[in-house]
Design a protein around this nucleic acid. Structure first.
Lengths: 358, 358
DNA sequence: TGTTCACGCTAAACCGATTTACTAAAAACG
DNA sequence: CGTTTTTAGTAAATCGGTTTAGCGTGAACA
């Protein structure tokens, strides 16, 4: 367990000062030059023993860590982990490492992690903020002056850089699509949440229903509920409201729980009930029937985050900026009635109550 | 952007020495006591201004960071991210933060990350090692003396703590199950890899085939191949070997690509072809038909990792130890022929070549 | 009463880099 | 040739903690 050598060890060995070594390694500060022979001697030696400066000491002195913190709700959610991976790859290319952690929707934990990140002197933050940490983020920016990029949702009152998708438009298109494909009573299953991505999706749904003159069926489920419970709640919602013949789910995992509920009810998709999910999933295409979804442009989101952050790290002053990316509806089998394809026979369309057998 | 205050600022303010503060905050070192009044004064003040020591300085001086590094292939793989999350939750409880990153099967990147972790003075490592980093891990232990827990796979030559599942047993059970359910020609689709979890699975399959006196069909796919390409390769493998009437996939994502291939070939599961996946997936139960899988006990794996690591962090000397957890076969529709349930009519079983229409 | 010891506390060294401030020597200038 | 400027290099301060070594003072002991 031999000890790593420090810049001073090298200085002693080479009979030069630590200062010179530091200058050489950091590409000589303007005006402070090192002669070519000394420079070469140092470089060669450093190379030969594979010396790398101690990052902790470097961070302590400079206050910069070349680390970006990423904070999401749940790293095992494919939406977050996919974006996380793309971001990681790209920040890596410009010399930043990324440090990610998940809050599990626990405000205390989020605060704690944020504090830890700050203590570790991370250079910037990428956050899908959970409710309740608005003030911490505010504090982060004021006290530390570090750039913060929020994604998936944001706090309108904060001067952060935000990257989100057009939630309202996405939900609107999806709901409209269901109506146009002959589903007369489209329900919206969402979370009881006032985060703005959720309210946007709800808005989109309501707008579509309003424009089409259809009744609204909205189920708001509690946060932090386990999948089994969600399935039960969705199931009883569908049972209670027999008129419903299509459902738009507001998130990834609601769709999954919803599909389970539908399968328990022995309803056939799309014949008995149409389905569209918000957030696509690698597996939706493989389900039978395949599931129509509002796909978020993961790659674009990630790239925007990286780009905006990189820019903010360079510039001194940060200005608020919100980038809204389009969502895309990927139509698959679950939202298209086979006999509805011929739009000339709309009278063939029926509500589930009339044709299901249960 | 007011500056955070340091221990020296407090010392000046309170007219005590920084040493005393440090002693109080770190629970007075044996013999070096601080009188009760002073102690209280310090504690009260620290509390009132919410002072927290600078972790960077602390790490620089002590060499301990209270951070555990976690390195996996791909953080967006549900297997890794689920385990990661459980580990994160539990290490958090005992005062450690976790810092995870993915290697993307890139050896150079793995080495780089390992070096960065070391430079950041992490206290321990949790690694699903990719091939080629054996020497780096070796070096890590020798030079740093930090505890290392490998999981999912390990290097038999290294003195690490290992947590793995019974890959051979899992694959054996799965293959046997297919044979017993009337699938006469079971293929094994795996990766061209000599990592030991993979060779274990292959062993299990071969053993089952050997014991049942069946022919072996093995497809070894290259590493780091994109899903579309994988689908193509699996498809042509199934097309070429028409006798195959069941497939055991060696990993999560191979199963997904395989299902796509099977769907493209218009083969019905399980009538034309039986399917079992290694690694379960939240969505497999929702596919239609639902997919039989060898489930790894995610929670147990994570808990074992946490426990063993916690123990190693306490003790000074680490001893090698390999924990093998059982895998469980979760039988669903994809591996059970409807008409094969009545085992008394085994002659009804047929190979795909005789009944498919393509 | 003089010596020892324990207690309570602190000055200073240290971790390993960066950066400021300064010096000696060489070069440029008048 | 004397003075100023530039150049090459280094000593020392700094970041913010922890830890070692040591210093008075009062209590215990002989």
């Amino acid at each position: 367990m031999k000890k790593k050598l420090s810049i001073h060890d090298i200085a002693r060995e080479l009979k030069v000062s630590a200062t010179s070594i530091s200058f050489v390694l950091n590409g000589a500060v303007a005006g402070k030059k090192v002669s070519e022979p000394v420079r070469k001697k140092i470089l060669d030696y450093v190379e030969s023993i594979g010396y790398k400066p101690n990052l902790i000491a470097q961070t302590l002195r400079t206050g910069k860590s070349k680390i970006i913190a990423m904070l999401v709700e749940d790293i095992s959610d494919p939406f977050f982990s996919s974006i996380g991976r793309i971001i990681e790859d790209n920040l890596y290319k410009i010399g930043y490492k990324i440090f990610h952690s998940s809050t599990n929707n626990n405000t205390a934990r989020a605060k704690d992690l944020l504090r830890m990140f700050r203590d570790r002197h991370v250079d910037g933050y990428i956050i899908a903020p959970s409710p309740g940490i608005e003030s911490d983020i505010q504090h982060l920016m004021n006290t530390e002056g570090k750039p913060v990029v929020l994604f998936d949702r944001f706090f309108p009152d904060l001067e952060t850089i935000n990257v989100v998708i057009d939630n309202e438009g996405g939900a609107y298109t999806a709901a409209k699509h269901l109506v146009e494909n002959g589903f007369s009573n489209v329900a919206f299953v969402t979370l009881h949440s006032d985060q703005n991505q959720m309210s946007g999706r709800l808005q989109g749904y309501m707008k579509a229903m309003y424009e089409s003159g259809r009744r609204q069926f909205v189920l708001k489920l509690p946060y932090n509920t386990d999948p089994k419970e969600l399935t039960k709640l969705i199931r009883s919602f569908i049972e209670t409201n027999r008129e419903i013949n299509a459902v738009l789910f507001a998130t990834n995992y609601l769709t999954v729980s919803g599909l389970k509920a539908i399968s328990e009810l022995n309803l056939k998709i799309p014949a008995d009930i149409g389905v569209v999910g918000f957030d696509d999933n690698t597996h939706f295409a493989l389900f039978s029937p395949s599931i129509t979804a509002v796909a978020q442009p993961l790659k674009d989101i990630a790239m925007q985050i990286v780009q905006q952050l990189a820019k903010a790290l360079d510039e001194q002053e940060r200005k608020r900026k919100t980038t809204i990316l389009p969502a895309e509806l990927i139509v698959r089998e679950s939202s298209v009635l086979p006999y509805a394809i011929d739009k000339t026979y709309p009278y063939l369309l029926k509500t589930r109550t009339t044709n299901q057998n249960r």
